[in-house]
Amino acid sequence: MLDSALSVFRMGRNMARLMEGLGVTLEISLLAVALSILLGVPIGLLMASRSLLAKRSLRLYLEFIRVMPILVLLFLFYYTISKFWNVNLSAMTVSILVFTLWGTAEMGDLVRGAVTSLSRHQWDSGRALGLSETQVSFYVVIPQAARRLLPGVINLTTRMIKTTPFVYFINLPDLMKVGQQVVEVSGFRNPLASVWVYGFIFLIYFVICYPISVLSRRLERRWHN
């Protein structure tokens, strides 16, 4: 059994290729998640602002991204837009772009929710103590908003990571795509190859996502006390 498993990974550059695939997956995930969080905060604050124009247009953006399957967005940017405007975006650029567009919209909505759910009286009570606007944000609003934001952000992060295999359809050799290629090649000689390879991939996704959700539970518990 073990031999059959090891042989799949030892064959040719299989293991190295899987690791390269993992690199692609991590690059898309990390960049898109980081950009989404960075861009989502100001977007969310704008969504919570009084500007009707900002609110309406961002709402439209959010709904558009929400109803659109990620796959459609990937195709739209990779095949259609490059033809239409005659720009050549690499599959990697398109992937990061699409995932960031999605993540930013969702993150913005999370930030909007966290900020608007804080009562206006929390601002008032901080100001009544003599705290400046910046001090109120820093000592009163942000710590509370961050706590409310955490579960949603963790959920979004793991969802984004889990959705990256879609880049397979625009021929980006991520972990999943490489895995499939390895199975196709090794499958002739090793009928259990798919079990080992996909099992391995499952394990890797677990190893990436599980610590994130443990961390979030830890933080939540610490903040709860």
């Binding site: 009286h121 929390q122 009544a128 103590l129 509370q144």
Partner: peptide
């Protein structure tokens, strides 16, 4: 505001 203390209906503690 340092010289005018205010207490609210809903406490509004952090």
């Amino acid at each position: 505001r340092q010289r005018v203390g205010m207490v609210f209906q809903n406490y509004e503690l952090c």
